[in-house]
Nucleic acid binder design. Structure first.
Lengths: 215, 215
DNA sequence: GTCGGTCTGTGATCGCCATCACGCGGGCGG
DNA sequence: CCGCCCGCGTGATGGCGATCACAGACCGAC
């Protein structure tokens, strides 16, 4: 059974799906599309983005192997709430929305697991609303780095590397590339991270946790 | 069957619950509490709030009769993600978390209905994230007024009255009372609303829709 | 009716962040 | 191997909104 944050899909259900190999930049669905497939990320990374004013883009999530996505449209039949784009060469399993709903109806355990997945996403969304409306860019940057470190590198005590560009980080934070770069510069000068091309290394996570609270 | 936005609970499940009468200001649960009861609002209004920096408060939602709330903790067993406080004299039905989960396990229809409820909340949360991070206070104010009009007064074409103080509106928008008052002042001078004590009247909804887009 | 508290309206000032602008370096494709 | 483009870093400036400050209006309690 695949389990990692966003829901979970048992192997027998997964076996009904179609395996798809994606190239970097390939679009699985676009915001407002009426498709209802549910996807499971097997390898690679997939971005969930929504468009905003002035051609800006807001990054809602980056999915890593094990994550389930696309479930909202299968559940309520409404248009896609975001666009899904492969970031690297990736592999996903695609399930039809009807198959997914049948599986949920047939299995109370899958239903509860899906509820847990949505509950987790809702808690994260509420946390992001609170952060966005009350914290500074510096504090949000520190918090997001810690969250991304858990997601991409596990939460071991050593130095963690987060593979992300500053542009994507800014889109995730809902700020500009320049502001994100300045916040990272402050953290770098404070000695808690080092920055590189498409890469941020958290060298002192306890200090970063402390800065996230105060900054 | 009770159905109104946030999930739905069939009458036979509702009958297992305990009816509770609340006085204005009474707290049902506080942020981080470990209780797992699920509530259904029967009459009155209930605020869902989270605390933020500097003693500020962020208003996540106002529940009206028919709404289901408190389901997140029942589903994932984690602490309450917000505090629930009655705004007026209200009546709610309280179900134990275990009874709720048993009912979900026993009824695929209830499970799907709960999934739809969470999906709806998640879409609203994502919309709020996008709004908060890309729109001005003026635009967010206009959008929120339209949403609240639907929620409190139905979406008939005539003038709608939204019963809310400017302080609460500001907490909902994640801004200050002064900024909310200024945004409302602009809308009033534009002739699309009138303001009163604890009350905002949308006198020209089409014009407000237009302003929400441009402002 | 009067008093107190809450809710509303608005001016002045300040700071964070968006915007514009530019230079630098390093990876990759040809 | 070399140039080009993408990603990073940072200064200058301006605007939106937070903060502080105060006054008037409405409502309920007594």
């Amino acid at each position: 059974m695949f389990e990692r944050g966003r829901g979970a899909v048992p192997d027998d259900v997964l076996a009904q799906g179609r395996r798809r190999r994606l190239t970097a930049g390939q679009v699985l669905f676009r915001e407002a599309d009426l498709s209802t497939s549910v996807f499971v990320c097997v390898s690679g990374r997939v971005r969930l983005v929504v468009s905003a004013v002035a051609g800006r883009e807001l990054l809602l999530d980056v999915l890593v192997p094990g994550d389930v996505f696309g479930d909202l449209s299968a559940i309520d039949g409404l248009g896609r709430s975001a666009s899904a784009v492969a970031m690297d060469e990736s592999v996903v399993v695609e399930l039809s929305g009807a198959d997914y709903l049948d599986a949920v109806r047939a299995s109370p355990e899958l239903a509860l697991s899906s509820l847990r997945g949505l509950a987790r996403q809702l808690r994260r969304a509420n946390a992001r609303i609170r952060a966005g409306e009350t914290e500074t860019v510096a504090a949000r940057t520190a918090h997001l780095l810690l969250e991304l470190a858990d997601r991409f590198a596990g939460s071991g005590p050593g130095a963690a590397t987060v593979p992300i560009t500053q542009s994507d980080l800014a889109d995730w934070l809902g700020t500009t590339r320049e502001s994100a770069a300045r916040a990272l510069g402050d953290l770098r000068r404070a000695g808690v991270i080092t920055t590189g091309r498409s890469r941020i290394v958290l060298s002192d996570r306890p200090a970063l946790v402390a800065l996230a609270r105060t900054a």
